[in-house]
């Protein structure tokens, strides 16, 4: 595995070659004044300087809606496995960490073949952040930089050239045919300055404790007034779930055809903030209260999910929920800091 350096021009040729390779290349592009991952038609559409995308790239691994299986009403069913190879280009470190967490979650317990099929066929080219977004706090969560999960890591160096570091054979094979120069010691040093800078700059909201404290912090916070105070203004709109790179809950529904003989089973994104997320058979809703649902999300991020993936905190500090919440109450840092002020750490 080796690192190479691209000039801007060489980099565009590299991206053009990716597009011509025939696999869809999904990359951040401008969208109505914000950015969104979408199929890349031309190299110059790819925005190396994007701050954050409206939705995280998880939409390609766990699509908003997907068909799991087709069935005969009252009869046989067959699983739909339609994953195609794809390249995710320009994944920021915090989103890469989120994908790494999802990989762990979807592999464990019942192996989710729909997610894993897609993940295994996906090549990920990560990109160190160039422009911090207005609400990012990745530095507080230890996700301003990333060390694993990607096939290639790109870093825009202070002189404008682009360092590309292959981490897997898949990544190396993409770099090999491209015109570039081998990275020198000085380039790796320059990259380190970018990392150091990002460790400070990606911190628009400062968490007052180490993220690893959060599970303990939450142990004694179940009845804290903050949940009610915040949730009073909650619309239960689930925006904070939808835009979150680590939210992975889904709902499964059957859709039957007009002859009422065959059908499709689909899954689509769900969210724990939605009123009927916890409604089960018999119309019993075991999380009826807005505050209980609001609390649940922050417990998921800070305690429950970490319990499943070796203590990793399931908030990567992308700041998307802060921007997306129309009621302006979703900021996890505000809540955790508030708990820090008031809760005795046992």
């Amino acid at each position: 595995m080796s690192a190479v350096k691209f000039t801007r021009k060489q980099f565009e040729s590299f991206v053009s070659a990716l597009i011509q390779s025939g696999r869809p290349v999904m990359a951040p592009q401008a969208k109505n004044g914000r950015y969104a991952f979408g199929p890349l038609a031309a190299a110059e559409e790819f925005r190396l300087d994007y701050d954050v995308t409206i939705l995280p790239p998880k939409k390609y691994l766990l699509p908003q809606t997907e068909t799991l299986l087709t069935y005969q009403v009252g009869g046989a069913c067959s699983s739909v496995r339609d994953a195609e190879p794809m390249i995710l280009l320009g994944v920021h470190p915090y989103d890469m960490v989120a994908i790494n967490q999802m990989d762990e979650l979807f592999r464990q317990d019942q192996y989710d073949k729909h997610y894993m099929d897609r993940r295994c066929r996906t090549t990920i080219i990560a990109l160190d952040v160039v422009t911090p977004s207005e609400n990012v706090f990745a530095a507080s969560m230890g996700t301003a930089t990333v060390k694993s999960g990607y096939d290639i890591l790109l870093t825009v160096l202070p002189d404008g050239s682009i360092l590309a570091d292959a981490a897997t054979d898949k990544g190396q094979e993409l770099l090999d045919p491209a015109e570039s120069t081998p990275a020198a010691e000085a380039d790796l040093k320059a990259r380190k300055t970018v990392w150091d800078k990002n460790e400070k700059a990606l911190n628009k909201h400062v968490l007052e404790c180490k993220p690893s404290y959060l599970p303990k912090l939450l142990e004694n916070a179940y009845d804290h007034p903050v949940w009610e105070e915040k949730a009073r203004l909650c619309y239960s709109c689930g925006s904070c779930n939808q835009v979150c790179p680590t939210c992975y809950c889904f709902d499964v529904q059957d859709q039957v055809s007009w002859d009422l003989k065959t059908g499709e089973r689909k899954r689509c994104w769900d969210g724990c903030l939605l009123e009927n997320f916890a409604t089960v058979a018999g119309n019993h809703n075991f999380r009826k209260d807005r505050a209980a649902r609001y609390r649940h999300r922050l417990y998921r991020k800070g305690k429950y999910v970490p319990g499943k993936i070796g203590g990793q905190i399931a908030c990567v500090g992308c700041g998307r929920c802060i921007t997306a919440c129309t009621a302006k109450i979703a900021n996890p840092v505000e809540v955790y800091n508030r708990l820090m002020e008031d809760t005795e750490l046992g």
Binding site: I54, Q242, V243, E275
Partner: peptide, 14 residues
């Protein structure tokens, strides 16, 4: 659930 759910899924700018 509110329209926001479908709106966010479509990745609209709010």
């Amino acid at each position: 659930y509110p329209v926001c759910v479908e709106c966010k899924a479509k990745e609209n700018v709010c």
